[in-house]
């Protein structure tokens, strides 16, 4: 059974990627909301926000990238839910297919789809004046953190995908994730926030991740934030993966 894990996962990955290539709107809609936020904050609110950097879009982009992933992973829950509901999931489960291949295919698809959405958002940001002197190593570091973040959130999205009773339920879980960046350093420096809000903002994952990416783009020395960011991502990944697998085994016996 497990000897076919890699080939089964690749076959199922090919299936999901074909879904995406036939409905590219899932990638467009993933990118539209973060791009709208970016336009709103750069051209409407940005003039009134003091961040200390010369271009607000440079300050803003890391948070926007995190929002992109938070909205993109809801499609994983959506696609998984449709598979469960449509019966094809049970077909795969009753076939001699490596058991966790079905989930891994959806997770890898999420990585690919979110990567494309992220590239779209960065291209729009470049058009709006985003500039970075970051070299290949820094870009790779940013890509690595984003992939780790996507992986963690995608495993989280697997849980509602497996358990939801309706399509709305499957995708609604991502709304709080999308709004988490607003109470962080993603849009405004946390110094301007009142005490308790600031305490929350500075100690939630988005702030450390956004700060790390911002430092990488600005070619500044990344501080202790990167370790906090990585700890959040890896911790969330381990917990979400464990919980998703537990739900999966309970659901499928």
């Amino acid at each position: 059974m497990t000897k076919h894990f890699v080939s089964d996962t690749l076959v199922l990955l090919g299936r999901s990627l074909r879904h995406i290539s036939r409905s590219p709107d899932t990638i467009i809609t993933t990118a539209i909301m973060p791009i709208a936020f970016m336009l709103l904050f750069v051209y409407v609110f940005g003039g009134a926000i003091r961040t200390g950097s010369d271009r607000y879009v440079n300050y803003l982009l890391p948070g926007i990238l995190l929002i992109t992933v938070a909205s993109g992973i809801s499609y994983t829950a959506f696609r998984l839910f449709l598979d469960m509901k449509g019966g094809i999931f049970e077909r795969f489960q009753s076939m001699p297919v490596a058991r966790s291949s079905v989930l891994w295919a959806h997770v890898l698809t999420s990585l690919v789809a979110n990567l494309i959405s992220l590239v779209l958002v960065v291209l729009v940001a470049l058009g709006m004046g985003f500039r970075s002197g970051a070299g290949v190593a820094q870009w790779l570091a940013v890509a690595g953190i984003m992939m780790l973040f996507t992986l963690a959130l995608t495993w989280l999205a697997v849980i509602p995908g497996l358990t939801a009773k309706s399509v709305d339920g499957a995708s609604a879980f991502s709304y709080p994730l999308i709004f988490l960046p607003f109470v962080s350093s993603a849009f405004v420096p946390t110094e301007s926030m009142p005490g308790p809000v600031r305490a929350f903002a500075e100690n939630q994952p988005v702030t450390s991740i956004a700060n790390t990416i911002r430092d990488l783009f600005a070619q500044q020395q990344v501080g202790g934030d990167i370790w906090i960011a990585l700890a959040w991502c890896v911790g969330l990944l381990v917990v979400a993966y464990g919980a998703a697998m537990a739900v999966y085994h309970r659901r499928t016996g």
């Binding site: 080939s7 076959v11 299936r15 074909r18 449509g86 019966g87 094809i88 049970e90 009753s94 076939m95």
Partner: peptide
């Protein structure tokens, strides 16, 4: 082989792609 109550086919793929998918998964 199980054919469940609701046709367990992939709506987005073509009929041929559905068959190829299952043949691949059966190695």
């Amino acid at each position: 082989s199980l054919t469940g109550q609701f046709a367990a086919v992939d709506e987005i793929l073509s009929g041929r792609e559905n068959l190829v998918l299952v043949a691949r998964l059966r190695h």
